[in-house]
Simulated scan of single mutants.
Amino acid sequence: MPSEALVLGFDTSAAHCAAALLSGERLLAARAEEMGRGQAERLIPLIEEVLAEAGHGWAELSRIGCGTGPGNFTGIRISVAAARGLALSLGIPAVGVTTFEAIRLADPEALAAVPAPRGQVYLARPGAAPELVAAEDAGDARFPPPPAEMARAIAAVAARSAADTPPAPLYLRAADAAPPRDAPPEIIDDL
């Protein structure tokens, strides 16, 4: 009987770094660490630990799933860049999975919510675009699972996906950082 495809899922869209490895529907290994910063330095070593725990290597992966948000601007960029780079170097597809898709893995009709700044949440009704609402208006919405479970859900959604476009961040609002006020430096060409 042929072995089932190995699918890696990971997420850095919030204050965590998480990865999970699936063989078909079976979870082989998962790890998550709470962290406010440092995900860029920790993600690849964490993935290597998950692969080693499961007794597999990079070359055995069939597909990658990464969390695309909404969430932390820099965290999302870390996850997407890592997935694109790994997919290119390994010659396998990478799939972007939104937090809403991961939440809806168990219940496709769930009202999905993701915490947002300033006492608000991003709320996504099935078939509708996400909207920003006050947290108290979220009602009985489902919020993201713990980080290790989130990584598992991302891998499961990626395994079922037919997507063939590289993952891209899901930004629902502009970044908090403001562009610089100073004029850019003048570049002098002495050649």
Score class of each variant (00 low, 15 high):
153 A>H: 11
145 P>T: 12
154 I>R: 01
91 G>S: 09
160 R>F: 03
73 F>P: 02
156 A>I: 01
49 E>W: 05
77 R>Q: 08
85 G>S: 09
31 R>F: 13
82 A>R: 00
157 V>I: 13
11 D>L: 04
45 P>A: 06
48 E>R: 15
64 I>D: 00
74 T>L: 12
16 H>E: 04
147 P>S: 07
4 E>H: 13
1 M>N: 07
154 I>A: 00
75 G>Q: 04
81 A>R: 00
122 Y>Q: 03
19 A>V: 06
48 E>Q: 15
149 E>Q: 13
25 E>M: 04
45 P>L: 12
119 G>L: 06
23 S>Y: 02
186 E>M: 09
74 T>P: 03
19 A>S: 12
130 P>E: 06
115 P>D: 13
24 G>M: 11
190 D>P: 10
19 A>T: 02
155 A>F: 06
170 L>S: 01
45 P>M: 11
167 P>L: 05
148 A>V: 02
60 E>T: 12
150 M>E: 07
13 S>Y: 00
168 A>P: 00
10 F>E: 00
98 T>A: 03
140 D>V: 05
151 A>S: 08
121 V>W: 05
187 I>M: 11
9 G>R: 01
98 T>I: 10
119 G>K: 11
69 G>M: 04
16 H>L: 03
16 H>F: 14
98 T>H: 01
52 A>K: 14
182 D>H: 12
104 R>P: 09
178 A>Q: 14
124 A>K: 15
18 A>I: 08
6 L>G: 01
166 P>F: 08
144 P>V: 04
185 P>Q: 11
189 D>V: 13
47 I>M: 15
131 E>H: 04
153 A>D: 11
22 L>Y: 07
83 A>E: 05
182 D>E: 14
55 G>Q: 12
73 F>S: 04
85 G>I: 10
98 T>E: 00
112 A>V: 10
114 V>L: 05
82 A>E: 01
21 L>N: 05
68 T>M: 05
27 L>S: 13
175 A>I: 08
161 S>H: 09
128 A>R: 15
58 W>D: 12
45 P>V: 08
77 R>E: 09
99 T>R: 11
123 L>G: 01
116 A>I: 12
148 A>W: 00
51 L>Q: 04
98 T>R: 01
18 A>M: 10
138 A>F: 09
116 A>N: 08
169 P>W: 01
5 A>I: 01
83 A>H: 00
176 D>G: 05
123 L>P: 02
7 V>E: 01
126 P>D: 09
106 A>H: 13
29 A>Y: 11
93 P>M: 06
183 A>I: 01
154 I>H: 00
120 Q>A: 14
111 L>R: 15
38 G>Y: 10
163 A>G: 05
